[in-house]
Amino acid sequence: MNSTAIFINIFSLFVLLVVFFKDRQKTKQALKVAVQSFFNILPTVLIIIVLIGLMLTFVSSSEISTIIGEQSGLRGVLIVALFGSVMHIPALLAFPLAASVLENGASIVAVAVFITTLTMIGLLTLPLEIKELGKKMALLRNGLSFVFAVIIALIMGSIL
């Protein structure tokens, strides 16, 4: 276990203890929700792990780097951004995926744009968003998110 994981576990445990003494009944209910969502997300976690394993075993770093590395340029970034907008995986699981490609040749810009578009833009949930916010606001939000995701990623690439 690295220090980050230890820190996060201690933090969660601390919050858990604090609320436990405030309201036991609600804390129990919260733990129930936690266990349920853990098992709900578990299959997807395993899928991602198998896919990461396969990708890093059968796709070489140089291949990853030509598609989404530094030399892939703005076109590569836009392709990754489109990919992130269309894909629908839990945001929590985007991070191990991003880390695995980052260690193996992907550029910071590509990884940052992937995470931001994946979380901010949802084509699958767009109908629901239109229903609740109206067509104009929903399309505006998704469109602007795409533009700003690219801008954020490009800045990250230049400062990191």
């Binding site: 276990m1 690295n2 980050t4 994981a5 996060i8 576990n9 933090f11 969660s12 445990l13 919050v15 858990l16 609320v19 804390t27 919260a30 733990l31 129930k32 929700v33 936690a34 266990v35 969502s37 853990f38 997300i41 976690v45 929590l92």
Partner: peptide
């Protein structure tokens, strides 16, 4: 190492 802690926090 991290998922259970994250889930507990979300549940809370």
């Amino acid at each position: 190492a991290i998922l259970p802690a994250v889930m507990i926090l979300m549940g809370l």
